[in-house]
């Protein structure tokens, strides 16, 4: 990547004297631009945004039909149901994370831009969380209410899903970056990301269970937060390495 023409502004910005200072773009600005681009693109294809939500609702629907319509029993299994649905829905949504950008060459341009690929991919992952994790977090309390959770549990469930889905998006970004070049990589992607997501499932389901019982749920929330911090620190690095390898 050293043999770039000097006419690409971001690269030229790194070599003072070759280009006007106005063309220099800091990596924070570049990340913000990438984030805005992804959000704009997504809002122009709204149908895609609804799909993970509909999938989440469908998976939740399977349990009352498959287990029992009794609210007492459903309330017991609600945390597991919600978090399994959340894991599967976020897995489904990973398809949209890098695929289009890899196909039309955007990712290649990102890698060649001379900007930090880590920052750009972190921006993409943030956009992905805004578009899938956050809507799912808003949807989860509704699904929980339908499974017999009390209204008092709503803030706790919303918070735990919102926090947990940050980590799920980040782990998913690693898996998606590594499987970029693979045809029919869907099953492989699930095999790569689900084992790594299990701690999120455990702490998230525990937080949801405590919220339904009306007990204090700070401990699992703090652990979910710790996982999110760890993910934010390390996952974009691994995803950037994965994208570079896939583009080789």
């Amino acid at each position: 990547m050293s043999e770039l023409p000097a006419s690409i502004p971001a690269v030229a910005g790194r070599e003072p004297g070759l280009s006007p200072a106005a063309l220099r773009v800091s990596s924070l600005t570049a990340a913000r631009m990438a984030l805005r681009r992804d959000l704009t693109l997504a809002f122009r294809q709204r149908a895609q945004l609804v799909q993970p939500l509909a999938f989440f609702a469908m998976v939740t629907l399977l349990f009352p039909l498959g287990v029992s319509p009794e609210l007492g029993r459903l309330r017991e299994i609600a945390p597991g149901v919600l978090w399994s649905a959340e894991l599967l829905a976020s897995l489904l949504a990973l398809e949209f994370l890098f695929r289009d950008d890899a196909q039309d060459g955007t990712l290649e341009q990102y890698a060649l831009s001379g900007q930090s690929l880590t920052a750009l991919l972190f921006a993409k992952t943030c956009a992905h969380w805004f578009l899938t994790g956050l809507p799912l977090a808003l949807m989860a309390p509704v699904a929980a209410l339908s499974l017999g959770a009390p209204v008092g549990a709503v803030p706790g469930i919303l918070l735990s899903v919102a926090l947990g889905s940050v980590t799920l998006s980040l782990i998913g970004a690693i898996g998606a970056s590594l499987t970029l070049g693979i045809k029919r990589g869907g099953a492989l992607l699930s095999l790569l990301t689900l084992p790594l997501s299990l701690p999120v499932l455990i702490f998230g389901a525990r937080a949801t269970q405590l919220a339904i019982l009306g007990a204090p749920l700070m401990a699992p929330l703090e652990l979910l937060g710790a996982l999110a911090v760890l993910g934010i620190t390390l996952a974009p690095l691994a995803a950037a390495a994965g994208v570079r390898i896939s583009l080789e």
Binding site: L196, L198, L234, A241, I245
Partner: peptide, 18 residues
């Protein structure tokens, strides 16, 4: 080699957490 290498390193960070 390199893709699975990244996965192995990510995995070994996760093994104690799991």
């Amino acid at each position: 080699d390199r893709a699975s290498g990244v996965l192995a390193v990510v995995g070994v960070v996760n093994v104690p957490i799991i």
